[in-house]
Design a protein around this nucleic acid. Sequence first.
DNA 1: ACTGCATGGTACTGGTTAGTAACATCACGT
DNA 2: ACGTGATGTTACTAACCAGTACCATGCAGT
Lengths: 202, 202
Amino acid sequence: MSRASVQTRDRQSASPRQRLLSAARELFSTRGIKGVSVDEVAEMAQTNKMTLYRHFESKDLLVAAYLRELAAEADREWEAITLAHPGDPAGQIKAWIALVASHLAQSDDRGCPLANAAVELPDKEHPARTVIEQHKTAQRDHLVHLCGKAGFEHPAQLADEIFLLLEGARVNVQSVGRCGPGGRFAAMACTLMASHTRTGTP
Amino acid sequence: MSRASVQTRDRQSASPRQRLLSAARELFSTRGIKGVSVDEVAEMAQTNKMTLYRHFESKDLLVAAYLRELAAEADREWEAITLAHPGDPAGQIKAWIALVASHLAQSDDRGCPLANAAVELPDKEHPARTVIEQHKTAQRDHLVHLCGKAGFEHPAQLADEIFLLLEGARVNVQSVGRCGPGGRFAAMACTLMASHTRTGTP
DNA sequence: ACTGCATGGTACTGGTTAGTAACATCACGT
DNA sequence: ACGTGATGTTACTAACCAGTACCATGCAGT
């Protein structure tokens, strides 16, 4: 079953809280946080604003919960990759690159919702900011760890290069579309990995 | 005179239109487009909403004009770099990297205002989107051109790598602050250039 | 049947926003 | 002095939005 239909079923049969989070995810990620009202979220969740406010103190905290769900799902994707390539850190990195590339290839991709939220919420005190910062830092740390275990030269720098390349691709797709340089980021990441391989001779 | 004081003086003596654009720039870039009302822009420009609407049809078109000014200023910075390093495309690239790195080092940097605007305005029909797309595409094309003239191997790929690295650094700074990988992007870009240099032997 | 609790529905408050109307004022060229 | 056009001022509309009060409903366990 596709992700979209899973979400649709979620919004029909699951608990109101889960329906609300599912609706928030679809609306916030496609139209932005400031561009969606809590009424719209409640309506798409097939409930109403009162029930929403019984589960979430405020819109800000709903946003934080929405981002926490995204972070948890990303962690689950990492776990799946780890299980699919046991003891093969380089393979895990490549699998992750392929996963992100497949996201970028989708025509409706709007980039990383966490990074987008950071752009939309400049207030440093917003409850969502700690979620964003923690998740981004953990992702980068994990990549550094994998690059080290895979035996690359200058593992931290390689990890940062891949990480920033990826963030750049996801933000650039929004500015110039997926036909721009963002569409070819997988090839670039592989080139980077090759240039950090210890044996420079063939 | 610092940029800030220049802008302050602009808002005291220049034409209302220029004052409005100067105020829009300060407010939109620091607090986001959706987070600032036209009243606030007019007030910071030491004028009022009516005058604003005599110069700009709507808030959307004010935003487009604001981004057009940013793009024009970036073009001017490129011109200055070109004049400072005549006939030295590699030096121009390095100067540009250093310029962006200095932006990133500022504690209040919020990343590229054009990319941020693309995140804040998901509507593909928004008048600002053509400004963003044209400017980003032109910047990337210019970088490809310079990489080719400088004699690097695979110039288009190197240009895209630098470009995405830079976009990634600017967006990442917003998520995790300038202490994260974004703060070291200049070193990474130089490594990339070295790895694309034709003579692999010392 | 009774009770308690989560939910649905409606209507409301108070505040904000983009955009407009109408009139007053000021500067400037003649 | 005069008139014209740009600007300042105030007040307004219509819509939107976050958040709340209040009551009805329906479903659980007992």
